[in-house]
């Protein structure tokens, strides 16, 4: 695979104003995602990770800094991107099938083709037979898979995922991580993944950025050199532990520094 820059964030700063108070949320954060690369941003809660992702999606304008997509300046511009927010945001008034079809309808794909694509993908996302169900009738894991399916159907080769598994129990979470890697192998898109779980970041990523507590700053960057495909058992191998130690230390240093 050729190393082409897919997404580049340069010196992003952002503030959040609550009435009269102005809080700095991000301070000069830079990162990049190569084409086909899986990159995670690891940070404690309240480090502005979600804000960073919204800025990357073009939903928020940063105070300072630039966003380059495929080398083009897209700062603060709304555009087609596979963005998945923290809550699944499946529409309760639409069935899983209708929810997943939204990006295709938005892209004005014809009805027949839309139906065929959904039919083809439901089993891939483990939702075969559940297309006619409403989100409220399904478990958290199924809903996340549905939301991910909707995200994947957005015709963009960049995925921005904001802690998609944070609300799930540990077991479901592990299954979905393994499953996400499989799906990702299938679709091969560039991914920027937000998480506060060290294990999740190592297990999924090619590269991990650590950012500090508010305001979020670049603290550490680590390439995860574990061959793919990765099975669940890599989480108990020495290289995994080695990365875990490095990231733990980086997080500990920077949260301590943040509180000083």
């Amino acid at each position: 695979m050729n190393k082409q820059l897919k997404l580049k964030l340069e010196g992003i700063s952002a503030t959040y104003s609550t009435g009269e108070k102005i809080l700095p949320v991000l301070d000069n954060v830079s990162l990049s995602v190569d084409t086909g690369e899986f990159v995670s941003v690891l940070g404690p809660s309240g480090s502005g990770k979600s804000t960073l992702l919204k800025i990357a999606a073009g939903l928020l304008k940063p105070e300072r800094g630039k966003i380059l997509v495929d080398g083009r300046n897209m700062t603060g511009l709304s555009r087609l991107v596979g963005y998945m927010p923290q809550q699944d945001l499946l529409f309760p008034w639409k069935t899983m099938r209708q929810n997943a079809a939204l990006p295709l309808i938005s892209a004005k794909l014809d009805k027949k083709e839309t139906k065929a694509r959904i039919e083809e993908l439901l089993p891939v996302f483990g939702l075969q037979g559940f297309g006619e169900y409403y989100p409220d009738q399904l478990s958290g894991g199924m809903r996340q898979r549905g939301a991910l399916m909707r995200t994947m159907l957005i015709e963009s080769d960049l995925l921005l995922l904001d802690e998609p598994f944070a609300a799930l129990d540990a077991l479901t979470r592990q299954n979905l991580q393994e499953w996400l890697l499989k799906i990702w192998g299938h679709f091969r898109r560039s991914v920027l993944f937000i998480t506060h779980s060290i294990d999740e970041a190592i297990y999924l990523s090619d590269r991990v950025y650590v950012i500090t507590e508010r305001p979020g700053k670049n603290a550490f960057e680590q390439i995860i050199d574990i061959p793919r495909p990765r099975s669940k058992s890599v989480t108990i191998t020495p290289p995994f532990s080695h990365y875990k130690k490095l990231l733990l230390e980086a997080l500990a240093d920077n949260t301590a520094a943040g509180t000083k």
């Binding site: 999606a57 073009g58 709304s78 596979g82 963005y83 008034w93 939204l102 990006p103 309808i105 938005s106």
Partner: peptide
């Protein structure tokens, strides 16, 4: 929920799609 409108924007949904798939059903 403004987040749902944001989500629709990342799909580049037009105003009419946002109205019929988000605003109308959620106000129902």
């Amino acid at each position: 929920d403004p987040e749902t409108i944001d989500l629709m924007h990342t799909m580049q949904a037009d105003r009419w799609l946002i109205m019929r798939s988000v605003q109308l059903p959620s106000a129902m």
